[in-house]
Each structure stands twice: as C-alpha cells, then as structure tokens.
Amino acid sequence: MPDVIEPDAIEITDINHLNHQRFENWSFSQDFCVTCGLCSSTCPVSGIDNFDPRKFVRMISLGLEEQLVESRWPWICTMCAKCEKVCPMGIEIASLIRGVRSLRDREKVPGILHKGLAAAIKTGNNLGLPQDDFVFIIEDVAEEIAEEPGFEGFTAPIDKKGANLLTTIHNKLVNTHTEDLKHWWRIFHAAKEDWTVPSENWEGTNWGLFTGDDKAMKIMVGRIVENMEKLEIKTLLWPE
C-alpha cells in the first residue's frame, strides 16, 4: 500500500502567480521547444544545481521569471552554445540565458562582473587605471622590448594620428600580465606595422556581453569607434 502523503507536505503553487505572457515578446523561439532534451545531453553544466537547458527553456515558456532571475542557473552557464548547435528547433538558448541575466538587479550580479563594467563606464577601463599610469606601463614594457636583440629602437606609439592600425588592450595585460603585451608588439615590429594604442578608452573587454547589459556594451563600443575616428585610423584590431 502506498504511503499516504500528508497535505501539509505538499507545496501549492498559486497558478495566478504565473505569467505565461511574460516572455512572449522574446524572439528566441523558446515556445518551439519539443522537449527532446538534446540540449541537456550536450550541456557541460547539466546536473549542477539541478540545472539543465531544457528545464530553463520550459520555465521561460511558462513565464517563471522570478525563479529564473533569482537563481544561479543563468550565471553558472558558460554560454558555450552547444545546446543551440544541437537544438532541432533552432531555439537561441544562450541568448535566453543572457536575457535572464539582464533582468538581475545590477547590484546582485555575481562576482566582479558588474563592478568591473561600472568602473569601465566611469573611467574607461575595468581597473579604473588612470591615464598617466597606463602610459607609464606601456612605455615601460616598450623599453623592455627595445633591450631585446632585433628590437633595437622599439617604441609603442600612443595616440598616433593617421596610423594604419589601432589595437585595444585587455585590462589584465596592463595589470598582472604585462609580459603578454609583448607578443603582438613583437609581431608589429617584425611586420613593420604602422600601429598605435589609444591612451584613453583602450579597454578591449566588454563585460556587458556577460551581464546582459546592451546599453553599457554600446557605450564601450562607441568609445572605440570614437578613438578610430578621432585618430583617423584605417584598421581596428580587437584581440579580446
């Protein structure tokens, strides 16, 4: 004989709290889901915290906004898009993840993601590194290269107007990984490239991609375009 479940042990979901129309204007094809589960089979995160992409997509369709926005699920996903690759219905699952990320209160975005982005919007880079310090680091690393055989006279041109190529810089390369600045610079030297680095708004990362912040992303991209036009550069290299 089956155990009798005590009524107190059952949690009742008030169906009136569900808003099935909540995501109906999202154009990621989420309502085409046939619940086949291919996405969940290929996902590297399936099983962690009971997450799997199929569940996530179904919850979007059901309009379970609060549960999704408050959960860790959209943040432990790496947005690698294997799920999208195998989805027979062409559902844009990684975009759904990013969409839910965008709904999180900015102060509750995990880790340093939003803090770094906020610093970038305010100062031009994720570190809040002042212009003088940036220029000092660039010149210092350039001097180190100039001491290497074959690189005599090497300099890193800053804000060179009319240069052929401008490169952005990943903030970690002017922070803890300055050695990694040198690879591209050595190649530019060997290729006799006419290149430059901007002294302001050089940040190559754009964490709005991860936090779902389109507005911030546009600001960051706009600043790079501004640098290109102000300095009259022909080619943009954005290695990040």
């Binding site: 943040w75 432990i76 996903c77 790496t78 947005m79 880790g111 340093i112 993601l113 770094g116 964490w207």
Partner: peptide, 12 residues
Amino acid sequence: CGGGGGTLTTGY
C-alpha cells in the same frame, strides 16, 4: 573550456 560567459569573474 569552462571559462566562458564570464565564469572566471562570477566567483563560482
């Protein structure tokens, strides 16, 4: 690789 989507910076 496991480091995508900002997971290097979320603290997870």
